[in-house]
Computed example of a mutant assay.
Amino acid sequence: MIVKSQIKLIRSLHQKKYRNQLGLFFVEGRKTINELLTSRFELNSLYETEEGLIGSKDIRPEIISQDELKKISALTTPSGCLAVFKIPEVQSINSDNWIVALDEIRDPGNLGTIIRLCDWFGVTDLVCSANTVDCYNPKTVQASMGSLARVNVGYTDLSQFLANSDLPVYGAFMEGHSVYKSDLPEKAVLVMGNEANGISPEIESLISDKIAIPQFGKQSTESLNVATASAILLSEIRRR
């Protein structure tokens, strides 16, 4: 049984300000919880509707009912388990690799997918502008599918970060040079812009190379989703 104070605490974690105040966030789903349990993330509490859903003999979950789980879940159909973790300290950035930087990404699903892409393509550091959506948003955590355990996500003044970086800065633009014809280095920063407005003028002024994904279809087609564009660009970067 889960007590009212625990329900109140976990429900408060649906909001960013309480996640920041308490230094906690919650995760749902067996795969994602198990991924985080074997990472640097520290477990605060674990709830299951039946014993044995999470594969760890050292952890004793609290067994709760399906109705109780619905009270704290962010999902329409809860998956049977929910865990609360402490938000870790951001680690130092590895400048010997490609770094992805996000300029005002607002959709939590896009951010979660980009975190997964960074994990897939071996990008260990994701630098976000201060007004990019929170990586501990429940929808972001869900979309990241456990990759949050392996990607160092930090928030900062992006213009200051780029101005102080010694790496070349590549930005994704509709009018940029074709990525398939670009001479890409072994390490650099790749900047991806806001879903509606692209890269902001302030950040654009700090970009050394504008790259684009050339369009082969009808010209009336809208621009690519930022997560889709990130996948194509990271694939081409690694192909080189």
Results as ranks from 00 to 15, higher is better:
L234W: 06
A74R: 11
L233W: 07
I203S: 04
E42A: 06
K4C: 00
K181S: 14
S95W: 02
L102A: 10
S79L: 15
G29E: 10
I10G: 03
G52P: 09
D183I: 09
S39T: 12
L46P: 03
T228Q: 13
P168T: 00
R240L: 11
D134L: 10
G122N: 11
V191A: 01
L158K: 02
S147T: 06
N97Q: 12
K70F: 07
A172N: 05
S178C: 02
S230I: 01
E222R: 10
A83S: 13
A231N: 09
Y170N: 01
L126D: 00
I207E: 10
P108R: 13
P61N: 11
G109E: 02
L9A: 07
N225P: 03
P78L: 09
T228C: 13
I237W: 14
L13D: 10
Y136R: 11
T38Q: 14
N97T: 12
N97F: 01
D166M: 03
G109R: 04
T140S: 15
N110Y: 07
F41L: 12
S230L: 07
K17T: 11
E28N: 05
V169D: 04
V191Y: 07
F41K: 14
Y155Q: 05
P61Q: 08
F85Q: 08
N94S: 14
T132H: 01
T32P: 00
Y170H: 02
Q142H: 14
D107N: 15
L53W: 07
E186V: 03
Q6N: 12
S200W: 02
V84Y: 11
I7G: 09
K70L: 12
R19A: 08
I72N: 07
S65V: 03
I10H: 06
E48Q: 12
V226G: 10
L9T: 08
T49R: 08
I87P: 03
A143S: 15
L206V: 09
I93V: 15
S79P: 00
G122Q: 08
G198M: 06
I207P: 05
Y180H: 13
G80N: 03
V100A: 04
Y155I: 05
C81D: 04
A212N: 15
C135I: 05
I105D: 01
H14R: 13
A74T: 14
V151C: 06
F85Y: 08
K181P: 00
R11F: 00
G55A: 11
I33L: 12
V189G: 01
F26P: 03
H177M: 06
E51R: 15
E195Q: 13
I105Q: 00
R30V: 09
W120I: 08
S178Q: 04
K8C: 08
N94D: 15
M174Y: 08
L24M: 10
K17R: 14
L111S: 12
I33G: 08
F26V: 07
D134K: 05
I59A: 11
L206Q: 07
N194C: 04
Q15N: 11
S235P: 00
T156C: 14
S95M: 03
G80Y: 04
S73C: 06
D103I: 02
D119M: 03
L82H: 04
